[in-house]
Nucleic acid binder design. Structure first.
Lengths: 338, 338
DNA sequence: CTGAAAGCGCTTACAG
DNA sequence: CTGAAAGCGCTTACAG
């Protein structure tokens, strides 16, 4: 029942453990006879090298920890962060790493410490993380990269989208299609992405000579569908009386939550109101009407995070900080020209 | 930079490695003086026990591998399976296991073998897996449980929903609310859950004396939103001319895909057609109109899978096979009484 | 090309 | 209560 060891193979093959090790790992010389014998036994006995023992001597586990800092569910199934995780999984497999996925509802050191005890080769930190957690991780000298974090940190590789540019794209698109009265639902401004999306949007809108926009910015406490719905229902009076022709939310979930409320009030989208989101989560295309949005390349985020982390782990010199990812406006059914 | 070891602590504390080990692990006796000294150093040097070394001697890694057998993205972010993964993550943390999440697009032994090499304590197998993979894993004697697999396997703990019962609930709900002409989109019948949902539905519908239903069953090749949309557009003529007042799909994604097509044809839901799905993925409630569906308790699936696996790992006697989870009909905006 | 020895960082009897 | 020794399953110089 127990897995056979190199020792057992050596015994049966009539050679030393060293020889078996060399043959299996492919490092060093071996005679064809020994090779045939050993490889035959490996096959026959279904020998699987013990990665734990290997890690012990090589001081490399080939494991990477993904830390998803989220206070609540969903975690891995999050419509945005889950996409990053998926890409991480795929790229990690390509580079022969295994992935520990962990979360830390308490936003404490706990899960980071746990990963350190497991001696992961590196860490991928996703979403909101406090400065103190980063300091803590840094103090252990373990390689890590951040993905879409709340804030930039000096010297830390941080993979993010050009969110300000994305916000600008939304503003230009809406103004160029004739919208002037725009209602904005702005996600938590403590998070870099929501902050920059709003900033890019408002800056651009002002440049287009639209002033009223300011008054129509609603702050969302979270970035969820429920929150979008809630805000819209709370501000329904103001919205209706404001003569708004468009709505922009700093992410898709907020946008769709708001949209659902509007649809329930029999507001016709896009005939009466155009709606734009941000992220391009899967559901954006599925919603009815499908949502015009700015696509964030979450696949690239995940892929890059693994590649960069791998470079850090392998101690490559001068690992270049990544360029911010280029967003792309995707026009769907939820918007129209006036 | 390197993590301090027990040896270093021992040296500084002026005691032996054995003593340090006993104090840190809490097994065995130690004097208060030694304890103070050692614990002080642990704190000061930020000592983190090396879980790899511990695993080496204890023959337990406290790691669990989650194998998601899926041919395509999404993986961890899958609207249904991702929920199971989330629950697994949470329960695993509670029981002090770390989770490797892996996938295997080739449906081969590869990722299973990889997990075996990593010497995980056990495996959680989710979704479609071939019998040969199961045989392969079984041959290694590693504890594992299945969650929502394609098929039952003798002696293997398999956590599933009462899908046949759920199908029956849908049929009863629709017939009792006056529907007789029901259009059915049936997901891949090679998968246990789709098969049983359809079976429960058709059996019940026949008992209610409705015969025509048979003719209206459309087979879906996959269980995706795109497939639901595609089928509905392909069968649009037949659907319109058939006078159907209701549509049942064996999962939510198919249902919403079909619904989106209908909405695009200006079909009013539920006024003209009632739609029922199955699963209760997050989107079901968010969709507009929100989808009436049968809730599968994915949270419980994930939680139970970890608990049962833990029992197998700890070699508890007589681990009871779990009861099938009880589904629950959730009536939302997409259905109405005739 | 091969084998004996040391060592990766722990834990666990065992003797004292 | 404490320490020396052996061992978990490998890899890696080193000598031959």
């Amino acid at each position: 029942m127990d897995n056979p060891t190199i020792k057992e193979i050596a015994r049966r093959a009539g050679v030393s453990k060293s020889t078996v090790s060399r043959i299996i790992s492919g490092n060093g010389y071996s005679s064809p006879e020994a090779r045939d014998k050993v490889l035959g036994l490996v096959e026959e006995m279904q020998y699987k090298p013990n990665a734990v023992a290997r890690a012990m001597v090589s001081q490399r586990t080939h494991n990477i920890g993904v830390l998803l800092y989220r206070r609540e569910l969903p975690i891995a199934s999050h419509p945005f962060y889950g996409k990053i995780v998926d890409a991480v999984l795929l790229e990690a497999a390509r580079l022969n790493y295994s992935i520990f996925v962990t979360t830390d509802p308490d936003m404490s050191y706990r899960s980071a410490d746990f990963m350190i005890e497991k001696r992961v080769d590196g860490l991928i930190l996703i979403s909101r993380l406090q400065q103190n957690v980063i300091d803590h991780i840094t103090s252990f000298g373990i390689p890590f990269v951040m993905v879409n974090g709340s804030t930039d940190v000096d010297g830390v590789i941080h993979i993010v989208n050009q969110d300000e540019e994305g916000g600008r794209m939304v503003a230009e698109f809406l103004t160029q299609t004739g919208h002037e009265r725009i209602f904005v639902v702005a996600g938590p401004q403590s998070h870099r992405s929501h902050h920059l999306r709003l900033k890019g949007f408002t800056t651009s809108i002002r440049q287009a000579g639209i002033q009223e926009a300011d008054a129509a910015i609603q702050s969302a406490a979270t970035s969820t569908f429920a929150e979008g719905y809630e805000i819209m229902s709370r501000e329904w009076e103001q919205f209706r009386e404001g003569g708004y022709t468009a709505l922009f939310a700093t992410n898709d979930m907020l946008a769709m939550g708001a949209m659902k409320f509007l649809l329930e009030q029999s507001v016709r989208i896009p005939e009466q109101v155009s709606v734009v989101g941000f992220d391009d989560v899967d559901f954006a295309e599925m919603f009815s009407p499908s949502l015009t949005t700015v696509k964030v390349d979450t696949g690239d985020m995940g892929t890059q995070s693994v590649r960069l982390l791998d470079q850090l782990i392998r101690q490559e010199q001068n690992v270049a900080h990544p360029n911010q990812l280029v967003p792309r406006l995707i026009v769907r059914q939820s918007t129209r020209s006036l």
